[in-house]
Design a protein around this nucleic acid. Sequence first.
DNA 1: TGCGATTCAATCGCGCGCGATTTAATTACC
DNA 2: GGTAATTAAATCGCGCGCGATTGAATCGCA
Lengths: 150, 150
Amino acid sequence: MPNDVERADELADFLCFSVYEAGHAFNQLYRELLAELGLTYPQYLVMTLLWRRDDRSVKDLGLKLGLASNTLTPLLKRLESNGLIGRRRDPADERSVRIVLTKAGRDLKARAKIVPERVAEATGLTQAELAELAETLRRLRSTLSERAPG
Amino acid sequence: MPNDVERADELADFLCFSVYEAGHAFNQLYRELLAELGLTYPQYLVMTLLWRRDDRSVKDLGLKLGLASNTLTPLLKRLESNGLIGRRRDPADERSVRIVLTKAGRDLKARAKIVPERVAEATGLTQAELAELAETLRRLRSTLSERAPG
DNA sequence: TGCGATTCAATCGCGCGCGATTTAATTACC
DNA sequence: GGTAATTAAATCGCGCGCGATTGAATCGCA
């Protein structure tokens, strides 16, 4: 990619390539780290949420991850068939499906402990830089998704 | 997502969610902007490269985008069947396939001009901030992909 | 010249993302 | 209480990403 970016629209294209590539790079990194745990990146994100708090609805997971049931249902079925979670209808509201960790799912938390450590290390960034970048992206994402309130 | 991130490994998880979401947000934004052009985000990236310089090999496009033929070949066939590009074997090296813009593909460049403008606008960032963020992500991506030179 | 190694594109299989639709349960309101 | 509107998951279709493999063309080297 050329470095002679000058105008805002070229910068936007440059940023767009950068975000695209950074996403790929993170995906690749997580893929390698998660391979021995038998998890994909999105599956790891779901497990992370469940390790923080168990027994969530599909809806709740979807809100945290920005995903709907069309993505989550198949993903959760894979986690279920891998023995990491259980899925059952909420007796109090049969529309809702509650996701709970199995023992294997809870036990995986300890083995997954090294993942964020390795990621932090691989970025080569200081804690302060990590925090700043994450916050910048978080704000950028807010700005982008507030636009066009469709 | 909680804001009480303190240790580097929690920051890494926080960053990972942020990158994941920022990627989604960009995808979403581009999807809306590109819908009227009949392009997807990766297709737009390919077209952008071809608008900069026409007549590239699949290999070259792949190097620029970090994609291999398993992703590019079907994508390029879609662009071809939409009449935006042509694909032909390089007579000088029959292993290689050259991608060239059709008239419709070249004409689309003018209509696509507003895309990066809208994106720059939607980020709500100044030119300086755009440039800095893009450069940070570019460096992060370099660091991440240089690790483990597999 | 011949033959193994390399390179490039294509193909296969699987797991996301997501717009759109469907089905079932619950809520709101008359 | 009955019906319409809403809500939650599931399903369908398609387009990426990507590890792995295949097949054809080219290169390297004796």
